[in-house]
């Protein structure tokens, strides 16, 4: 009550009224589905704030990350693993891929700001820019996982295919890649999970803005302003009204549930398709 006294949103009178209504059975507590669907709300209406825009924005970004980083990552891995000559250039590329995986994420944010927004001129706060930045961050993870998966396929399979007259491409696409697929998928899901929880680079490209409008349907919607789950958490912890702290806690739980589900799928895939030679 003491803190409510200071709070401009709710007066002690209103709280007492709410208690009375509850006792009378007119007011009750229920699950707040609005929390998942409603957009963010202004400082004076924390009760209306929801994760709708943030979930949509994160989903859009994950789609972009998946569509870009999986094909590019797998293609790069196949090239490096099966076709690239062993020389100084490929060594350099390999070292750099390993290093990229360890670069602080905020650096990718600055890169995105400089290139995608300032140079290319893409809109701020848009999932497309966030997706591109997160793609850059996810690529090394996917490449490293894919190369490990390709390496784990025994060379005897390659020999077998070539020995009956399959071309190199056929050996890769008919035999090696399918056998490496579970490992690649696992790596991809873990990469996506990392990207989903990534906050710092998104702050730099303006995804922390207050967005009340749902982004449109893709593909145009990729260019509309949107928020993202982890950024929404950060945003709510910065707001004045204590009720936003509860919102933030709720949003963190939602984010964690997504991450647990993704990692569980990765573990299941690995268990299900793990193969010993």
């Amino acid at each position: 009550m003491a803190s409510a006294e200071l709070d401009s949103n709710v007066t002690p009178g209103q709280l007492r009224l709410a208690d009375a209504l509850k006792r009378a059975g007119i007011l009750r507590q229920q699950f707040n589905w609005n929390f998942f669907t409603a957009p963010d709300a202004s400082d004076t209406r924390p009760e209306a704030a929801g994760l709708g825009v943030a979930i949509l924005g994160s989903a859009y970004m994950m789609v972009i990350v998946l569509v870009l980083s999986l094909p590019i990552g797998v293609a790069a891995s196949i090239y490096l693993e099966e076709f690239a000559p062993q020389n100084r250039w490929t060594d350099l590329i390999e070292v750099n891929i390993a290093n990229l995986a360890a670069v602080p994420s905020i650096v990718f944010g600055i890169l995105g700001l400089a290139i995608f927004i300032n140079f290319v001129g893409l809109p701020q706060s848009a999932p497309v820019v966030g997706g591109l930045v997160l793609t850059l961050m996810t690529l090394p993870t996917i490449i490293i996982a894919t190369r490990a998966a390709l390496k784990a396929v025994p060379p005897s399979i390659n020999d077998a295919a070539l020995g009956i007259g399959a071309s190199k491409m056929q050996a890769i696409f008919h035999h090696i890649l399918p056998l490496a697929a579970p490992g690649i998928l696992t790596g991809t899901i873990i990469g996506l999970a990392q990207a989903l929880g990534e906050t710092a680079p998104l702050l730099l490209i303006g995804m922390v803005a207050f967005v009340r409008e749902y982004p449109g349907a893709p593909p145009e919607g990729f260019f509309d302003p949107a928020s993202a789950l982890p950024v929404q958490v950060y945003n709510w912890t910065q707001r004045g009204d204590p009720a936003f702290v509860e919102r933030a806690s709720g949003a963190i739980i939602v984010l964690l549930i997504f991450l647990v589900i993704m990692n569980a799928i990765a573990i299941l895939l690995r268990r299900r398709f793990e193969r010993r030679w």
Partner: peptide, 18 residues
């Protein structure tokens, strides 16, 4: 590719496709 179809190979360790 055509050559290897005409000259087949069997390896030391049995290596059927999975």
């Amino acid at each position: 590719v055509e050559l290897r179809a005409r000259v087949g190979m069997v390896f030391q360790k049995p290596n059927p496709f999975p």
